[in-house]
Simulated assay, not measured.
Amino acid sequence: MVILFAPSEGKKEGGTHPALSPDKLIFSELYSKRLDVIKQYEDVIRNGNNEALFELFGIKDTKEYERYRVPFSSAPTMKAIERYDGVAYDYLDYQSLSSESKEYLDVNVILFSNLFGPIRSGDFIPDYKLKQGAAIGAFAPDKYYKEHFSVALNDLVGDQEILDLRAGFYDKFYIPTKQTTTLKFLKEGKVVSHWAKAYRGIILRKVAEHQIRTIEELLALNIEGLFLNEIVETKKKKEVIYTIV
């Protein structure tokens, strides 16, 4: 099973692994395409004024800008799934998982970085900041990655089932050509957003702990705090609706 997952606006600093290189990322044959994005990003950081950096980062604290001026050619890296630091990642709590569960996530989860595009969660990336949906100058990374990486992603998926745990925004990066399974979370009859992030992290943790290989196995899981309410299925999507209890 291939699991699609969103990144997080928050990131941990530092890293203990060498700088970014083609062998650290999936689809190394497309590394030159990633470099096209990276070069434009680093050009804005080197030459852009505070207004341009605000548009890029989405933060107004100019002192914080210095954190992101380290060139990727020398910046240390860490696993992407450890780099991201948001609600879903807090509830996933990757560090506390067994080595077997970590390996499962490293291989089976594809993250959609706003800067680096589709990467495995076990790929190594540097610290960076790019506001969701932000253009790099006049360049739109989401459209670029969708154009150049969709075929490679489809080949990677092959005959495997897809669990899509991304927020809807990340359809801009990739829409699978086969049916996907998505999750919706309701509380008191209303769709939730913050708790959706939390439960995506919780479910991803359960999936890793149980080494889930099919959607059928996922649906058989008993997840504390969730009641399987309904499954709505179309040709393109199977939507699993949970009620938070």
Rank of each mutant, 00 (worst) to 15 (best):
F173Q: 02
K79D: 11
P176I: 07
D164I: 03
E147M: 10
K146N: 15
E209H: 12
L165K: 09
M1C: 10
E42K: 04
Y31M: 03
K39T: 05
F57T: 02
G117L: 06
R46S: 13
S28I: 03
D155H: 10
P7Q: 00
R200W: 02
V87K: 10
I3M: 12
L115R: 07
G10N: 01
N108A: 04
F185Q: 09
V191Q: 13
F116Y: 06
I212Y: 01
D93W: 08
R34Y: 05
A80F: 10
A208R: 05
A135T: 12
A198T: 04
Y31I: 01
L219S: 11
F5G: 10
I175V: 15
F116W: 02
T181F: 14
K238N: 04
F27W: 02
I26K: 07
N47G: 05
L115K: 05
F124Q: 12
G201T: 07
D23A: 06
Q132I: 13
K79S: 13
A208G: 04
L92S: 12
S32P: 00
K11H: 01
V207L: 11
L35V: 10
I215C: 09
K143H: 00
R213C: 08
K235L: 06
G189L: 14
R200A: 02
I136G: 00
Q211Y: 12
K187P: 00
H210I: 00
V245F: 07
Q211T: 11
P141V: 01
L4K: 13
Y68D: 02
P18V: 11
W195F: 15
H17P: 00
L115H: 07
K178D: 04
E42N: 04
K102T: 08
L228D: 06
K131D: 02
G15M: 04
G58A: 04
G15F: 04
G117I: 03
E209V: 15
V37L: 01
N50R: 02
L97H: 06
E233F: 04
I136A: 01
I119D: 09
G201S: 09
K12Y: 06
K129F: 04
G201W: 07
E217C: 00
G201K: 11
F57N: 02
H194V: 10
N49A: 07
Y145G: 00
S101Y: 11
N154E: 15
N47R: 07
A135V: 08
Q179E: 10
L111M: 15
D127S: 14
E103C: 09
R34E: 03
